[in-house]
């Protein structure tokens, strides 16, 4: 059992390292962040990711995704009154936010390609409704947020 889990985490670590290399190359080209400068921050990021994957691996019943764990750990470690905050922020600033997004969407694009054929089976009416749903969700939230933030005097 632990052996299988170990194997899974090892495979996940390999993926993380390769993705990290893709990010480092991408942000060197796109945002001029030198690979060497970004390396320590990237190692920190991978360490947090691995911790998130391990927690997720041991809490299969909890419906809290590894993405949320990764976010939560980084959040706690960088709160202003936590001693690790300064150290982690100093290094992770060299990992550009946009740089991390490009490989994700490249993989995501390839993975959804197979679903394109299924789109043809859908009625065009459902496609129109879907776009209205997107707009409704987005602006519904935005309008309420605007009103509440105004009342609170935050904007």
């Amino acid at each position: 059992m632990t052996n299988i889990k170990g194997r899974i985490i090892l495979n996940q670590l390999k993926v993380l390292i390769l993705v990290a290399i893709l990010i480092l190359i991408g942000q060197q080209i796109g945002y001029g962040v030198s690979i060497i400068d970004a390396m320590p921050g990237m190692i920190l990021v991978i360490l947090i990711c691995i911790v998130a994957l391990i927690i997720k691996g041991f809490t299969p019943k909890l419906k809290f995704p590894a993405f949320a764990w990764a976010s939560l750990i980084a959040l706690i470690l960088t709160m202003p009154f936590v001693p690790t905050s300064k150290f982690i922020l100093e290094y992770t600033t060299n990992v550009s936010f946009l740089g991390t997004t490009t490989p994700i969407l490249a993989f995501a694009g390839i993975s959804i390609g197979m679903k394109v054929a299924r789109l043809k089976e859908l009625s065009w009416k459902l496609i129109i409704i879907a776009f209205l749903v997107f707009l409704g969700t987005f602006f519904g939230s935005a309008v309420i947020a605007q009103i509440v933030l105004k009342i609170q005097g935050l904007i």
Partner: peptide, 25 residues
Amino acid sequence: VELAGGIVMISLLPLGVKYGTLVGP
């Protein structure tokens, strides 16, 4: 294509960390 689907979940994690470092401060 199938492998790409498996990788997406993991490749999201560095972004998750990045978001955490934006929310924390």
